[in-house]
Write a protein that binds this DNA or RNA. Structure first.
Lengths: 353, 353
DNA sequence: ATGAAAGCGCTAACAC
DNA sequence: GTGTTAGCGCTTTCAT
C-alpha cells in the first residue's frame, strides 16, 4: 500500500511517468487523449494516475499552452438576485465548455471595474462578460478595446460598435407597462429612475412615455431621476408627494426604486393598489409573497447568460464579423399592486392609519 | 513613439529586461521591491515597464513561487443577499492581502461542492472558505482534510475538530426571539425549519423551545421540518393550518421559510401582526419596506467574513493550534410583523377578503 | 510509438 | 549589485 502523507507535495506528471515507467511526454499524451499511444502504456498511465491520485495542474497546463481556460465575469454587485443568478448561469455555461469562471464585483464603481478588468487581463483570461456599472462607454470598455481583450457587454448597455452586447429588451417591456397602465385608466403616472445608466434608462423612459401618449394623449407622465445614488431619489420622491402630487401609478425603472417607492407609500399610509398602483422593473422572489404582490418586469436572466456565452465563445474561437447586439424579451407580470384609479375604497388620497 | 498593436503578444519580463538593458532577474528584483538594486537601474526598469505597459503575470509568478495567491470561496448559492454580501466581503478582504478570490456556487449540492473543492485543490489555492450545503461532516470537508487543504468552515456549521469554524450565534438569537414572543404573550408558536442542515437547525430549535418553556411553561411549540426541499414545507404548513391549528406566532428558521409562511398567510387572508405574528431568521432588504415590515434575525455577515479570513490567513501563514470555533452575535429586529395575540381587530381568525 | 529537449513567464540560488 | 542558471508543472516539437 502506498500512502501519501496529507501534506506531501502533490504528485506531478513526472511522478506519474516514473510510476508508469514511461516519459512525462507520454503521460501528457494519454491525458490529452492522443490516440497514438500503445494501449498497454495507456493502461499503465491510468493505473499510475489512479494510484497516485494525480490531477493535472490546470494553471501550469494553461501556461504552457499559452491559453487560459478561464472566463472572467464582472458585475456591479453580488447582492442582488439578478446578478446572483446571472453569475450562477454564467458559471454553469463556462464549466460546460471546460472553462472556469472567475467572478468579481465592481461594487458600482467604474474605477474598480477597470482595475478588475486589468487584473483579468493579467490573468490572461480567454474572455470577459462585463456588466458595466454605467454603460458601454466607460473606462472599462475602453480598456478592453485598447488591449484587444475579447468580451461581451451585458445588461446596462445598448448596441455598441466595438463589442457584442446582450441585454433585456427593456424598451419593449416599458412600452408594455405603459399599455397595461393606460388601459386600466391611469392618466397620471410617475416614473422613477437612476440617471447614471443614462442611455438605457432614458430609452426605457422614452419608450414608456411614447406608448402612453400614443394610447392616451392626455396622459401626464412625471419623472424623477436621481443622478447616481438612491437616497436623493428618496428625498425627491418625498418632496414630490409633499407638494401634493397624486399620480395614480408609479413605474420604477430599477429594483431599489421599487423599494423606495414602497417605503414612501408606507410612510404616507398608502396601500397598493387602492391608493396607488406600482410596477417595478426587475422581479424578485419576495414580490410574489408580500401583500399585495408587486407587479414587475421579469428579465430573462437565463437567456441573457446563454446568448452572452454563446457569442463570447464564438469570438474566442476566432469567429469574426461585426458586433452583434442581442435583445432578449422580458415578461411583464401584472400582479395585485396594480389596479384601476378610482376603484379603491381609499382613492382620493386621504391618509390612512 | 512606440505603439504596440492591440493584438501583439503581451510584453514579458524579458522584453522589459531588454528595453531597460538589464537582466530579467534584475527586473524581477525591482518589481519585488528588493532594495539591493542600483537606483539608476531601478529607474531604467520602471521606465521600461511604463513604456511597454508591462504587468507581471500573476499566475506564472505563483507557479514559480509554488504558492498561489488565490483564496477559494464556496457557497450554496449566489442568489441570496446573505451569500451575495458574504462573497463581496470575502473578496474585499482577500484583495486587501494581495490575494484574488475565486468564488463558486455549490448550488445546494454536496456532490458538486466536493467537485468544486477538488478543482480548487487543482488550482492549488492557498486556502478555502467553505459554506457547506449541509454541515461540517459532508464529503467536502472530508476531502479537505484528506488532502491537507487549509480552510475555514462558515455558516451552517457547529464547532468541528478538524477545521476552524465561524458562524452566526443563531442559538442565542433564537432564545432571544423566544423571549420577545413569550413576553408579548404568545403561548402557541409554530417553528418552521429545513431539516437538512440538521445540527444547526436543531440547535436553534432547541434553544428556542428551551427559553420559551423556561419563561412560560405552558407554551406550546409546534414544529414543522422539511427534510431537504422547501415545497414539502409549504404543503405541511398548508395541512397544518387546514387542520385548524392557530398558533399566534410563527418563527421561521430560514429565509425561504419566511417567504413560504407569508404566502400561506396571504392565501388564508391573514395579516401580520393582527392575525398572526411572524419572525424570520435572516434579514433581507425588502423586509423593511413591505407592509408590515417583517421582524428578522440579522446575521453579522461582515463580522463572519472578517473572522473567517482572519483565522484563515493565520493558518496560511503557518499558525498552529487547535481548531477555533467562533460565534458572532446576531441582532434581533422586532418589526411590525410581531404583535401581541388577541390585540388585533381580526384576532380569532376569521378569513378576510 | 516514444522520449529528449525546449520553453510558457516568472523567481530564487548562487556565482561573480 | 547583477547576471547566469535552474526549475515551478506542464505541453509540444522533433528526432528516433
Amino acid at each position: 500500500m502506498v500512502h501519501r502523507e496529507a501534506h506531501a507535495r502533490r504528485p506531478s506528471i513526472h511522478d506519474v511517468a516514473n510510476s508508469a515507467g514511461v516519459s512525462a511526454a507520454t503521460v501528457s499524451k494519454v491525458l490529452q487523449g492522443v490516440a497514438t499511444v500503445k494501449p498497454e502504456n495507456v493502461q499503465r498511465v491510468f493505473d499510475a494516475v489512479a494510484l497516485l491520485g494525480y490531477r493535472i495542474d490546470p494553471l501550469a497546463s494553461d501556461l504552457r499552452r499559452a491559453k487560459r481556460r478561464i472566463i472572467g465575469a464582472i458585475v456591479p454587485e453580488f447582492e442582488s438576485e439578478f446578478f446572483g443568478s446571472m453569475i450562477t448561469q454564467l458559471e454553469r455555461l463556462a464549466e460546460q465548455r471546460g472553462y472556469a469562471l472567475v467572478a468579481a464585483s465592481s461594487r458600482e464603481s467604474e474605477a474598480r471595474e477597470k482595475e478588475i478588468l486589468a487584473r483579468m487581463h493579467d490573468w490572461r483570461v480567454s474572455g470577459v462578460v462585463l456588466a458595466p456599472v454605467r454603460n458601454e462607454h466607460g473606462p472599462a470598455a475602453g480598456f478592453m478595446k485598447k488591449n484587444g481583450m475579447t468580451g461581451v457587454l451585458i445588461d446596462r448597455v445598448l448596441a455598441d460598435d466595438a463589442f457584442d452586447t446582450v441585454s433585456a429588451d427593456s424598451v419593449s417591456a416599458s412600452a408594455e407597462v405603459a399599455r397595461e397602465l393606460v388601459e386600466r385608466g391611469h392618466r397620471h403616472i410617475l416614473v422613477l429612475g437612476l440617471g447614471e445608466q443614462a442611455a438605457t434608462v432614458r430609452a426605457r423612459l422614452e419608450s414608456f412615455r411614447e406608448r402612453a401618449l400614443q394610447l392616451a394623449p392626455d396622459t401626464r407622465v412625471d419623472v424623477i431621476l436621481s443622478e447616481s445614488d438612491v437616497e436623493p431619489l428618496r428625498s425627491s420622491l418625498r418632496d414630490y408627494f409633499a407638494k401634493g402630487e397624486r399620480p395614480t401609478a408609479v413605474y420604477s425603472l430599477f429594483l431599489r426604486g421599487t423599494l423606495v417607492a414602497l417605503s414612501e407609500f408606507r410612510r404616507r399610509g398608502w396601500h397598493c393598489p387602492n391608493d396607488i398602483s406600482l410596477v417595478g422593473f426587475d422581479d424578485a422572489e419576495w414580490m410574489q409573497v408580500t401583500w399585495p404582490a408587486i407587479a414587475a418586469v421579469v428579465q430573462p436572466v437565463r437567456q441573457i447568460a446563454i446568448q452572452a456565452m454563446d457569442v463570447l465563445f464564438r469570438r474566442i474561437e476566432g469567429g469574426g464579423g461585426p458586433p452583434i447586439a442581442r435583445l432578449e424579451p422580458c415578461k411583464v407580470l401584472m400582479r395585485e399592486s396594480v389596479g384601476s384609479p378610482g376603484n379603491g375604497p381609499h382613492s382620493g388620497g386621504g391618509k390612512r392609519q
